[in-house]
Nucleic acid binder design. Structure first.
Lengths: 239, 239
DNA sequence: GAGTGGTCTAGACCACGCA
DNA sequence: GCGTGGTCTAGACCACTCT
């Protein structure tokens, strides 16, 4: 009755060890890790084995390596974060740059669907953020963001929120968003939505739901975006 | 005024050489490549260098490696092709399995937008395929597929078409689809669409446009799907 | 020049598939 | 038992960055 792998390669153990240390904050985002040689010496393996682990971390966007300088814990800067997780393009194919406005933040008990989506305990509280996002000054997206309150102490006092939330999650709460699952469908604008987006009721909206996942697997946010795709499109690259 | 790389690593040259040979059909899909040792000997490099090139090919889904057996040119089987390029899930999260019906195929001159999207010459011809796709017997998607005629000799005589076209492109025309760019937006069902999908006119439809790209960069198809997302959602995994 | 990551080699041994 | 890919090592040299 053994477990699946039957044997764990050394480089995999090195990888796991490094991930755990990054999760625990042994090195902050933007800081450099020890050199390959140093890591190899400390862990008692060859440099090549450390390299293989670091290469995997690089592919997964957890670290960045710069020849001649060192290996750095990846940082969610404003631009990088947008580039990875904001997928809307203008009709000419250029990347749309969003701004935010009209936000509200409130704390309340989690609802049943939120408990399921975010894997919460039954009695947990959440923060609900709503805001409008603009592209070139035009209201384009209505966002609702639900966050587990226990992960974000003091969040209600942080208004106004920055445009790129993931950067804040990382720096202020140690939550490193590394993956997200999205589901898209088409829907019609309700009356209140139409008013806020300055379009006709019943106009088509792209409905996007996202669950964002941190390095350790924690579900950090459930975001619902309702987007007027008259002037932007959602871009996906399959490969 | 030198070119960008300034120097091309050996493993990169090995990689390029292997890609070229796969494109040229030196080994057919499903066939095995020579062993690492054999390739290393033939190319006059070490086994490790060949391995690095093969690892890259593996990540890009061009080959599959099986320990104890060998390295095989990746094959677009029905299931694999669907898994990679068909992104619709049922509402419970399970993968929707489509079937196809009611197809028409015609040949005609390319229109201006098609010339731009598929990078055609001005006077080229295209095949236009239209068909309906069903999920669990219910009409769910209206597809229009535009193919450059020069890439698909005799295509008009192939009806009825298989459900998974990319498998056919690969085996019958040597066109290996390795990437695709998609753009999504929300739209309303026109009258004729509503009739064919058995929904109300003005119901919301997810509009998906895809340009599929072969191994050598050729644009092989421009596909427009108009999908009723009442019972399915389009899933994206960002990482 | 010192220190870092990037490339390349040669060789050993392990895990797997198959005859 | 043989051939394949998978892991791991030790060491050499190259390219880049900074002092």
């Amino acid at each position: 009755m053994d477990e699946a792998p039957h044997y764990r390669p050394l480089y995999r153990q090195v990888y796991d060890s490094l991930v755990r240390q990054i999760v625990d904050g042994a090195w902050r985002p933007g800081e450099s890790l020890p050199s390959e040689q140093a890591l190899a010496a400390k862990l008692g393996v060859s440099q090549g084995t450390v390299r293989k682990a670091l290469d995997t971390l690089t592919v997964e966007n957890l670290v960045e390596r710069r020849q001649g300088k060192g290996t750095y814990v990846a940082e969610h800067t404003q631009e990088r974060s947008l580039f990875r997780f904001f997928r809307l393009n203008n009709l000419d194919g250029s990347r749309a740059v969003p701004t935010s406005g009209g936000e509200t933040v409130k704390q309340r008990a989690a609802r049943r669907d939120e408990i399921a989506k975010l894997k919460l305990e039954a009695d947990e509280k959440v923060f609900e953020v709503t805001r409008t996002r603009f592209v070139e000054g035009v209201p384009m997206i209505l966002e609702k963001i639900v966050l587990p309150a226990k992960l974000f102490p003091g969040f209600e006092r942080r208004s106004p929120l920055p445009n790129a939330l993931y950067s804040m999650y990382q720096h202020d709460y140690g939550l490193n968003i590394v993956a997200a699952n999205e589901e898209l469908r088409s829907d019609l604008a309700r009356k209140d939505e139409a008013r806020r987006l300055k379009i006709a009721p019943g106009a088509p909206l792209l409905h996007i739901e996202r669950v964002a996942i941190a390095l350790d697997g924690t579900r950090v946010e459930w975001r619902t975006s309702r987007c007027n795709t008259r002037h932007v499109t959602y871009a996906v690259t399959l490969s």
